[in-house]
Computed example of a mutant assay.
Amino acid sequence: MLKVQSAEVRFRLFECGQFFLILMGAGLLAPAAFADVVEPATLAVADFEFRDTSGEVRDQTAEHEARLKAFGVALQDGLSGNQKIDLVALPCQAEQCTIKDPGLVDLSKQAKTASAKYLLIGQVHKMSTLVGWVKFAVLDLSNNKPVCDRYLTYRGDTDEAWRRAAEFTARDVEKHCIP
């Protein structure tokens, strides 16, 4: 009878040992399983400004305003598809909402009020009919410092050229500016 008890005790110890090994393994694997679950970065996107130094004679103000608006929509759409980014709206979106009007200080305050951690600001610059630039920066609102400051070029002054520039800008922000 004594031998039976000692075999039972060994078996129970073996079961306990296995249980603890499983627990330890689960404890080691759990952080790896949840490593991809990261809080998305909250980003507020200000309207981009437009600057035209092409010197073209024909007034293209209405076309450029429409393209700039479409640029903003394409940029927002491109960024909203990323699970690492949570876009938050700025209160000034119904009106002018650029670094000139209401200004960077007010934009930063509004972005913080909207619970954004980052603020995207920028400008589209038409240098000529063939060459355009997109200059943008992403600011970390916790320390008021730029996370990135980028300068992209694009070719053409058409709806498609501007749309592609916006899509490329969104990918560049995702790749280089959001930690």
Score class of each variant (00 low, 15 high):
156 G>W: 13
60 Q>A: 12
138 V>I: 02
6 S>G: 05
126 K>W: 15
44 A>D: 08
93 Q>Y: 06
153 T>K: 04
75 L>Q: 03
123 Q>P: 00
161 A>E: 03
71 F>V: 05
170 A>D: 08
151 Y>P: 01
36 D>Q: 09
67 R>A: 08
17 G>F: 08
141 L>D: 12
158 T>G: 05
167 E>L: 15
22 I>P: 00
65 E>C: 09
49 E>I: 00
169 T>P: 05
153 T>D: 06
101 D>A: 10
35 A>S: 14
88 V>K: 12
178 I>L: 06
140 D>Q: 15
173 V>K: 05
10 R>S: 10
68 L>N: 06
40 P>L: 04
43 L>K: 00
6 S>A: 13
61 T>G: 15
146 P>S: 06
99 I>M: 14
146 P>L: 03
33 A>Y: 12
27 G>L: 11
78 G>Y: 00
121 I>A: 10
12 R>C: 12
110 Q>C: 07
142 S>V: 06
91 P>D: 07
82 N>G: 03
52 D>K: 10
66 A>Q: 14
21 L>I: 11
87 L>Y: 03
136 F>T: 01
83 Q>A: 13
45 V>F: 01
12 R>F: 15
17 G>Q: 11
117 K>L: 11
88 V>S: 03
4 V>I: 14
1 M>G: 10
148 C>N: 03
138 V>C: 04
68 L>F: 11
50 F>Y: 14
109 K>Y: 13
54 S>E: 14
147 V>L: 10
170 A>Q: 08
141 L>A: 04
166 A>D: 10
122 G>W: 01
49 E>H: 01
89 A>K: 02
124 V>H: 02
67 R>S: 04
120 L>D: 09
62 A>W: 11
105 V>C: 11
51 R>E: 12
150 R>M: 09
53 T>Y: 02
83 Q>I: 01
67 R>C: 07
89 A>S: 04
39 E>R: 10
13 L>D: 15
147 V>M: 15
82 N>T: 12
117 K>A: 10
121 I>D: 09
57 V>M: 09
110 Q>D: 07
156 G>E: 12
138 V>N: 00
123 Q>V: 04
146 P>N: 02
169 T>G: 06
164 R>Q: 13
140 D>C: 06
63 E>I: 13
136 F>N: 08
177 C>Y: 00
166 A>R: 03
179 P>Y: 00
108 S>W: 05
159 D>R: 09
154 Y>E: 07
57 V>G: 08
112 K>N: 13
103 G>A: 02
74 A>C: 02
102 P>W: 07
67 R>I: 07
136 F>D: 02
7 A>G: 06
10 R>I: 15
98 T>I: 08
114 A>D: 03
35 A>W: 12
21 L>S: 09
64 H>N: 14
86 D>H: 07
135 K>C: 01
166 A>C: 14
95 E>V: 03
44 A>H: 01
154 Y>L: 03
12 R>M: 07
141 L>T: 15
129 T>Y: 10
144 N>S: 15
